[in-house]
Design a protein around this nucleic acid. Structure first.
Lengths: 338, 338
DNA sequence: TATCAACACGAAACCGTTTGCGTAACACTT
DNA sequence: AAGTGTTACGCAAACGGTTTCGTGTTGATA
């Protein structure tokens, strides 16, 4: 087992000083031709690589970025992560991931741990717990320490930092408009608990589109489902209670699950009832019928977030915080048209 | 903006030496009661936390583990990752993720980068490129340097290290046995290019089950699909060419896609033709019909891998390498039974 | 021959911690 | 008064690098 070789080892072996070795390897003008060649040859032979940790300590830069997300087994977050990782790698950064598991406490612990020198900046999306609690002290601490932070998707106005979000309200508005243009008037909304910022934004767009057509927003057309372990019976009851000919769902799982239920109830999609979901994931493409859905362009969001972060880290202009709005795209499939 | 406070800052402020501060914070017996209290109070007030990088350098332990996987927008890998992250966190480790994107070169670059001190050990699954090239020099380098390595799922015999794999051959065998017990005899296999180790293992199990019943393995019942961008026409041609009443697919996407095609061809599932896939992901649960599939227990695999790794790191017994075999579970759903 | 610049290299500080060891100050013993 | 033992702290090395500055040795110049 040959341990990693260090500058000191090379210096000892070649009977020169450590600083000479260091400079020789950087091709410094200070060092003579012969010595440089000797050192470089030796280093190559023994496959010398500088120790990242030592460099980090010296430079006060780790070349790591921390990503804290609520979940990883989740299509949207993985696509964003892919974007982050891709761009970070291009710029020579590595990515440390922590999963908050939708828990406020874990989010706090993870961020504080990483903030102690492990990373140069954060990309985060808030956990459900944090959004419910509305407690952002850990994020304020981070920014106060001068650690750059970029929030994406699940953001909050109380935290001032760079942000990347979807035009949730606008694209939900467009989706409902599409239903309306199709002659559908009894449009339901299937959503999550209201402390999810994005769900609220989507609900606003939904309502705006309705009101614009003089259609009143009826509370009985709004179904609020738990984040996990959705019960089919609840869905069935909802769809039995009212006449509904179109449904906007805030994610693809809700949409696919609702489609399955109404199909079992004998309704035809899209003739009797149409669906539009959010997240253009694997489910939307392979469901039956295929699902018309809002592509959130997660990978682009990730790239943008990483780019903004690295810019802050490396340029560190004290320029004002920006919020980049990524425009969703409605992908038309079988749940709205034949 | 209040920068992170260091031992030196505390020492200067309190007019004691750095070592006194360090010892006081560790409650060392060497330090007097008064001084300890003073230092501890000050540290708490200013929220002192030791710098991770400095600790890493000193201890020669980063408390980071590196995870290199082929893809992240992929159900199985994300579940494994979740298991790794969960266990690592419990043990006080952070996780640095690199995505090889199925490329040999990226895998090499990423591992070499991380191996220069950034991590204490690796958990990896081989990229397609690496399996095709059969070049493992980067892994040998890692292990030669004494960096612990655990491979999961996509492993290779040429690399000697700890491993976690599924009983692929055995569970494929069982799946086919299930078809046979059901009276089905024309059983097809839909698989990937053969350089994927796991696909080969599954094919072996498939063949073994057939041969055991005196059924010959017919090459025209084997469909090899590309890893990405599968064309429906090819699938249609395959299913038109032969009489097929059961299909074993090496992943859930192939299965769902094939199901959609044969349904369009007018075949009834599971009456005319039954399907079993691999990976109990979101698709299997929401497809139409729902898919009978092999649960790979990715999260458990991840936990086991992380546990093995951390054991090597912390205990570092030179004990022989182990291969843990996780047993898959066939989850019965609508694609095999009504 | 004294001066000086250029060259090639080494010493040392620094990044933030930990820790073995040395020691000043004091009390206590004989 | 000399010796001994604690106590409570500081010094310095070490982890593996980078970088500033100092310096001995040349050879050229005046």
């Amino acid at each position: 087992m040959k341990r990693k070789i260090t500058l000191k080892d090379i210096a000892r072996e070649l009977e020169v000083s450590i600083s000479t070795v260091s400079k020789a390897l950087k091709n410094s003008e200070e060092i003579g031709r012969d010595t440089k060649e000797k050192v470089q040859a030796f280093a190559k032979l023994y496959n010398y690589r500088p120790n990242n940790i030592a460099l980090s300590l010296k430079n006060k830069r780790t070349k790591n970025i921390g990503v804290v997300i609520p979940d990883i087994v989740h299509y949207f977050f993985t696509t964003v992560f892919r974007g982050i990782e891709k761009l970070a790698n291009q710029k020579g950064y590595n990515v440390i991931v922590c999963v908050s598991d939708e828990s406020f406490d874990k989010e706090v612990i993870n961020t504080e741990l990483l903030a102690n020198g492990s990373i140069d900046g954060f990309v985060m999306s808030l956990s459900a717990g944090t959004q419910r609690k509305m407690d952002f002290h850990h994020l304020l601490e981070i920014t106060e320490q001068g650690i750059p932070l970029v929030l994406f998707d699940r953001v909050d106005d109380q935290v001032s930092c760079d942000k990347v979000i979807l035009n949730d309200r606008e694209i939900a508005y467009q989706a409902v408009k599409k239903f309306l243009a199709n002659g559908r008037k009894n449009i339901a909304l299937v959503t999550t608990e209201s402390y999810f910022n994005v769900s609220e934004k989507r609900a606003e767009g939904y309502e705006e589109a309705l009101l614009e057509e003089q259609i009143s927003v009826r509370p009985e057309l709004r179904l609020t489902l738990p984040y996990r372990d959705v019960n089919d019976n609840e869905i069935r009851k909802f769809f039995s209670a009212s006449k509904i000919d179109a449904v906007l769902c805030v994610n693809e799982i809700f949409a696919v699950q609702c489609m399955a239920v109404v199909q079992k109830m004998g309704r035809k999609i899209p003739d009797d009832i149409a669906f539009i979901g959010f997240t253009d994931g694997i489910l939307s493409k392979y469901s039956n019928p295929t699902l018309t859905t809002v592509a959130q362009h997660g990978e682009r969001m990730g790239e943008i977030a990483a780019e903004m972060l690295i810019e802050r880290i490396e340029i560190d202009e004290e320029k004002p915080f920006r919020t980049v709005i990524v425009e969703g795209t409605i992908i038309e499939r079988g749940s709205t048209v034949n």
